[in-house]
Design a protein around this nucleic acid. Structure first.
Lengths: 199, 199
DNA sequence: GTCTATACTTCGATAGAC
DNA sequence: GTCTATCGAAGTATAGAC
């Protein structure tokens, strides 16, 4: 009745956290495909088998990597919005180049690692809801009617723009980016100034 | 003085085209990481070595894959715009789910395949310029002043939105998409109706 | 043009010693 | 908790037969 002898390391282990840190660096610098147990072990100064000791499969590692990052991002955004809930602040939070790189890598990863898909979708929804409520609340405070532009659309447009600019910048292709950033910021500032309010 | 004996198949070969077709399908369905010489050969009904006969390295295959698709997309968009240059038509062209999936995969690929980076950047610029000119021309025809919203920003917002929705939809996450599509279309129609024209 | 044979590398994963 | 030993599978790539 006894199962396999395989052991798994504790979740609060320092080595485990270190492996995740190094894996995160590698993911950002070289892409997810470069994060293999052997390379990760070497980079972290441990044997590749230790990677498998802490993460049963590489899928598990990627899921943990995503979860850790997403959880932290969610917390960070939540706190930032509590301090400053203006539209420009929301925009600043979405324009995170490293975050965009992460999204790309995981979006591609999830294409052939189905276990990741559900995980990502769930966080996506939570994240979107958080942002949506923030925009909706701000619109309400400024007296901007829904019909001018639904918060959902504002969000998709803002995050979409930020995302695409990050990706392009990663290729050394930044044509028009400055103009877009400037215009967007000014537009948001005009909304903040009450230009669209009906109260 | 004679180099290596290695041969490479002709570019107009039918087998070569078939390999690219199958590779394209695989890329879309399972992600770029799933496109290996062995798997591709098996799927295409030939030996994996034939893949290497037509493409010296896998990098070459991915570059060809990208180039073929990009070239065709560029041509398709060019022709479509010649027939119908309205903003709604431009929007329809950017909302291509399969195209977005492609972009994601290649954006991630280029992260660790530097040879692809230059190739993608070049096409990106050409594509963007084409779209930009189309929007600018349409704005001019409708008498919409630059200050309302620079064509660059229109493009980044539209393609950004389309892109992000495709990615999310790929995760089965479509909250707010319908609303965004409807609103965007109506907005573009209002612009087309001359609501922002000054002439 | 396509295949077989083959070399060499790297990968993920497990068992067991210390 | 970390390592050594080890497996089998899969990867890219080349040479040469037909």
């Amino acid at each position: 009745m006894s199962g396999p002898t395989r052991r798994i390391g504790a979740e609060d282990s320092q080595s485990r956290a270190h492996l995740l840190d190094v894996a995160e660096q590698m993911l950002l610098a070289e892409g997810a495909a470069a994060v293999t147990s052997r390379r990760l072990g070497r980079r972290a100064g441990v044997s590749s088998q230790l990677v498998h000791y802490y993460f049963r499969t590489m899928d598990d590692l990627f899921i943990e990597l995503f979860r850790r990052r997403a959880e932290e991002g969610l917390r960070r955004v939540e706190q930032a919005l509590a301090v400053d809930g203006t539209l420009t602040a929301i925009w600043d939070l979405t324009s995170n180049p490293a975050g965009a790189l992460f999204n790309i890598e995981f979006a591609a990863l999830a294409n052939h690692r189905k276990a990741l898909q559900a995980e990502i979708a769930e966080f996506g929804e939570r994240y979107r809801r958080l942002q949506h409520d923030a925009v909706a609340a701000r619109f309400a405070a400024l007296g901007v009617p829904e019909e001018v532009c639904p918060p959902t659309v504002v969000l998709l447009a803002l995050t979409g723009m930020a995302q695409i600019m990050s990706i392009e910048a990663n290729f050394g292709f930044t044509t028009g980016h400055d103009e877009a950033v400037t215009f967007t910021r000014q537009l948001l500032e005009r909304v903040e100034a009450g230009e669209w309010g009906v109260g």
